[in-house]
Design a protein around this nucleic acid. Sequence first.
DNA 1: GCCTTATGTTTTGAGGGAAAACAAAAGGCG
DNA 2: CGCCTTTTGTTTTCCCTCAAAACATAAGGC
Lengths: 401, 401
Amino acid sequence: MIQPSTDAPSGARQSTLRTTNLALVLRTVCASARPLSRSDVAVATGMTRATAARLVDELVAGALLDEAERDPLPRRGRPATPLLPGARFGALGLHIDAGLLAARVLDLRGRVVGERVEQRDLRGSDPTGTFARLGALTAELLADLPAGLRVVGAGLAVPGVVDEAAGVLLRAPNLGWSDLGTAELLHACVPGGLEVVLGNEADLAARTVADEAPGRAGPHRDFLYLSGQIGIGGAVVLDGQVVTGSSGWAGEVGHVCVDPGGPACSCGSTGCLELYAGRHAFLRAAGLPLEATSGELAELARAGDPAAAGAVETGAWALGVALAGVVNVVGIPTVVLGGHLAELADLLRPPLEEHLARRVLSARWRRPRILSAQGPSAAGASGAALRALDQVLADPARWLG
Amino acid sequence: MIQPSTDAPSGARQSTLRTTNLALVLRTVCASARPLSRSDVAVATGMTRATAARLVDELVAGALLDEAERDPLPRRGRPATPLLPGARFGALGLHIDAGLLAARVLDLRGRVVGERVEQRDLRGSDPTGTFARLGALTAELLADLPAGLRVVGAGLAVPGVVDEAAGVLLRAPNLGWSDLGTAELLHACVPGGLEVVLGNEADLAARTVADEAPGRAGPHRDFLYLSGQIGIGGAVVLDGQVVTGSSGWAGEVGHVCVDPGGPACSCGSTGCLELYAGRHAFLRAAGLPLEATSGELAELARAGDPAAAGAVETGAWALGVALAGVVNVVGIPTVVLGGHLAELADLLRPPLEEHLARRVLSARWRRPRILSAQGPSAAGASGAALRALDQVLADPARWLG
DNA sequence: GCCTTATGTTTTGAGGGAAAACAAAAGGCG
DNA sequence: CGCCTTTTGTTTTCCCTCAAAACATAAGGC
């Protein structure tokens, strides 16, 4: 018997055409660095002006696009009406990490509409209390939002492995949490009706590098993102898309083996990258207390402190071995350092690039490059909001009613 | 100025709807393990019977689908007309490897219509002569094909890194070839008008595991494929798609570092996986001549030969360290062993699964599994043909004229 | 003040799928 | 044997969406 095939691709009908093109128009406007006119949209998409204008009108009516003030630049011809992504659509991004709590709202233009960030040591904390505090921050933030903003979705970034579908945090060693169902905790955290999607911090932070605004591609589309918090998480980004795999277990770069004869790791393996280039490993090797920041370590190393310089040296070597393996497998020679590694990027870059040049097979053809993530702290919060906004870009028709 | 954006997604029109649905119908029939009727297609795709039937009729008229004999099974209702992928469409897959030359033609049903495989030591061979020999095999093969078969495309699998767009073989250490432009060599190799697309052997061989016939998914959709030839190539398969990255440099598992303090590799790095689990490494460790086969090694190890057993032990250990890293990064716990590793799979599995269980972070949740590729030799040839046939599935309208 | 230019809108037409009725080919059953 | 039921496949009618082309609008240039 043939099933109606719940997930199988279903036949395209007239309405599919419509929603597809509606989404295309919205994405085209979002993707542009400068405001487009209806005519620009027609040219960019290959539609006729009539069709493009009709779709734009519909999106403007639904506030998914805004008509901006006319450009007073003196040009020939009828003046165009510039279009911008709708400022009245926003999404909530939350972030829990070992050292901070954050709640941030981004709008469709990628602007921060409001945020609350709180430094706080959450290692070994009680989930209930932490979610309550996050709920308080969120309530404050939402109360301060400009009137008329539609919050269309929410996401929570956590430093660990998640089962997104089930909303379960499987393992977050830095928080000391595991197998934590978040549905109820989150339900108490945000206003009812707003669903919060769980996500891995590194995956979401990588989005802020891949996209500089909802639907607008950043300068790098293929890269490996390293999120150095206490451990080291990672995300592979191919053509602007985070490769998440069939489950949440991708990107555990911190547990790539650097030296099989090395020390035992808490994960059960030996010689994991985290033991050489994790935050604590850096600080311990530099003789600093675990409360010190990576900025302090960097300053010491730059000042010529031998222990700090040695810590950087060792970290760069370990990163070189592990990242060379990853680059050889995924074939992407661009690595973006985030989290605490971003603060050390300038120091790590020269030795790390040298190690990669030697160990990466393709180095002679395309020399591996090390970049550092620029964005604000709690990038996971922004990434979570971006992901929620991507829903709107994927199916604008849903939000027109 | 807004450009007509050559590669940007262009607006969907009525005809897009048509080609999309045409492709959907063809893929639906191909994906099914048993023949579908027009009515089945309608149910599976969610279209009306009228629409599905019209599209099927068009595909049948173009020979992309065949109407099979009616099933004589006594059932109520008007008897259905079973549909099968068109047997008159085929593609040519070629394969050059260190130890063999192969040419094979598959049809849309995934059947081998004809093949020529020749064992031959091609290490350090002259490209011109080798391509000439491959051309001779191909000419023989094509001459023997049943009349009326339309060969719609061709592919060539090579054990090395390729630039598919440019048709350049950048690096194939086992053949001793590098920076080899293949366009002219291939032009002389196959009949004019047939374009041959270059591809990496491991990527293409992985397709034969992901798809058991054109458009029909195999039992595993997410896995890491290891192609043990002389070196070790690999491919990551996610949701049935080979992840090739932005260039051809993905999948070089053989040069993942297993021990940074290990011996120097010809690639410039140290302690690469190939030095422990490459074909030659196995044979050398077992005290066998380099001409011996992996089957002989396996037999010795099973018979209790200590050197052979040690070689397997060491290889499993090295594979464990390297694959654990890959599994931790891509989050896929299924590994399919191909090439010479397939012959050793039964021996490697127990120790390798044990190493992975210890070193893979997700092992407690999803225990890593080791499988061995079943298919015929020269899987790259089949994969190359499958890829060429996928063009037809992607845009059947092109082949209706 | 008229022409040129670019943008935006309206009108008309064609293509493709949906819905529903219709036709066909078998078994079931009195 | 003849009629009903069931399933498949076909035909007809209608609606939706986009294309094409003409038209309207709002500016600068001369």
